[in-house]
Amino acid sequence: MYDFTYARVSSVADAAKQLKGDDDAKAVAGGMTLIPTLKLRLAKPSALVDLGGVKDLAGIKVDGKTVTIGAMTTHGAVAASAEVKKAIPALAHLAAHIGDPAVRNRGTIGGSVANNDPAADYPAGVLALGATIVTNERQIAADDFFKGMFETALKPGELITAISFPVPEKAAYMKFPNPASRYAMVGVFVAKTAGGVRVAVTGAAPSVFRQKDMEAALTKKWAPDAIEGIKQKQDGLNSDIHASAEYRAHLVGVMAKRAVQAAG
């Protein structure tokens, strides 16, 4: 790891100020992606701005139709939350299968979504549920948030403070993990929401995306066999030592069907 200066801030405003004043500074939430990256000397930030001391960024609030999760809420807390389990069980299930228990005790929803790792789980849930990303500056619809591999709509110094999930009618997440890293090789989140059916795929491509053909088919008929014949296109999908684009494309179909089945 290259050395850097470390600052533990007590407010989002303070963090934003520090980040805006130094282009090479980076915010750290749980650090589950950032610290391994630093250890391998793949990044060289001048400063780390630690959000761990900011009060009120962690926590889960549920009103009738919306689940709002503070950015610094750990995956473990989401997985264990009785309220999330009740309102959006698929989201609790997703959180319960990120990384391993020790990672879930540190990793946060805000960090995961802001990082937009192509194989992360949360982006699929955020996109499929049509969540709203709340930042210190504005509210961003999920459809406008994920821009590409490790790219989001966040501007320099803009920090996620919470994510609001509308409670869906039905939803489920199914992932086929990469055998080595256990990140999603293909993860499909399906949701039947007030705004229609949404299917989001993570792990398969450089960034999370919506599978519109499946959405259309499931809108007509919400059942696994409704998407039986829909083939995910291989173009633009990831290909690596664990899964070719062809295999990933196939798994998108399998995981989607299983997710619809699980959603009931």
Partner: peptide, 23 residues
């Protein structure tokens, strides 16, 4: 079932960490 040490055609080790080599 799991483990495979893979070099690419350029002689670079693709399975060079525990995130890439399936333990």
């Amino acid at each position: 079932l799991l483990e495979s040490c893979i070099y690419d055609g350029n002689g670079q080790l693709l399975s060079g960490s525990m995130s890439d080599y399936t333990m």
